[in-house]
């Protein structure tokens, strides 16, 4: 059979076995596939939000709902969330620097950048806690929406329902990312990676952290901007 003959031809390629076709170790591959699958979780939540918004007559204006900045009583739409966005971007940068320092086997830099990343994550979580508290005192919570539609008509609860669920789920990811980074920091300080001879774990933690940042790009746009 011509077909079988084709299969028999020995042609060494990346896929012919014995090594990874992607030149990555399995842990990183697994992390990538996990993130792909997690992006479907977030995707499903955000798409549900979009679907509900498309299915509803009228929607509150996010610039009215999210218009406060701590310490400022004036109307300041988009200000606070911009701050949060920049914090997350900066913490992503420090993380990528930590990963790079790991590749160079530079323990001191790894520790320094990891600490900066953890601080960034904690500040972000603090910002979110402040925002949630503030919204709660305005009467917003799961099942309660004090904000009228942008044209002043009766709005649905789903505005706040989705906001708290999705930012909460994202915040949970940030929280677990911070936990992972703390574990990485402890392992680095205990010279675990020096003993192993590589900092591959930091790279995987970095992937997770960047994913959290990536999701925030979408959450930020979908909830605060449009």
């Amino acid at each position: 059979m011509a077909h079988t003959a084709a299969i028999h031809t020995e042609k060494p390629s990346k896929w012919s076995g014995g090594s990874s076709p992607f030149k990555v170790e399995y842990g990183k591959l697994m992390m990538w596939f996990f993130l792909l699958s997690d992006s479907f979780t977030f995707g499903a939540l955000l798409i549900s939000y979009g679907t509900t918004r498309f299915a509803t007559i009228g929607w509150p204006d996010p610039n009215v709902a999210f218009n406060k900045f701590p310490g400022i009583s004036a109307n300041a739409p988009l200000a606070f969330v911009s701050l949060m966005t920049f914090i997350l971007i900066i913490s992503s940068v420090t993380m990528v620097l930590a990963v790079q320092a790991g590749k160079e086997m530079n323990k001191k830099d790894v520790v320094r950048y990891l600490i900066l990343t953890i601080i960034g994550g904690l500040i972000f979580l603090g910002c979110q806690a402040w925002e949630w508290t503030h919204l709660f005192h305005e009467g917003a919570w799961w099942g309660a929406n004090p904000f009228a539609n942008s044209n002043g008509t009766q709005s649905t609860q789903n505005f706040t329902n989705f906001f708290f669920t999705i930012t909460g789920f994202h915040g949970f990811h940030v929280f677990s990312g911070v936990c992972i980074n703390v574990i990485m920091l402890i392992m680095t300080l205990c010279n675990k990676f020096e003993q192993r001879g590589h900092y591959l774990m930091i790279e995987k933690a970095g992937l997770y952290w960047h994913f959290v940042d990536l999701v925030w790009v979408f959450v930020f746009t979908c909830f605060y901007l449009v």
Binding site: K14, P21, F22, V93, M95, L207, H210, D213, L214, F218
Partner: peptide, 18 residues
């Protein structure tokens, strides 16, 4: 998203298959 995935998550520098 492209910048974050491509450069921070390093995907642009992986092999094409990946």
């Amino acid at each position: 998203a492209f910048y974050i995935i491509g450069y921070f998550m390093h995907l642009r520098h992986e092999v094409r298959n990946m």
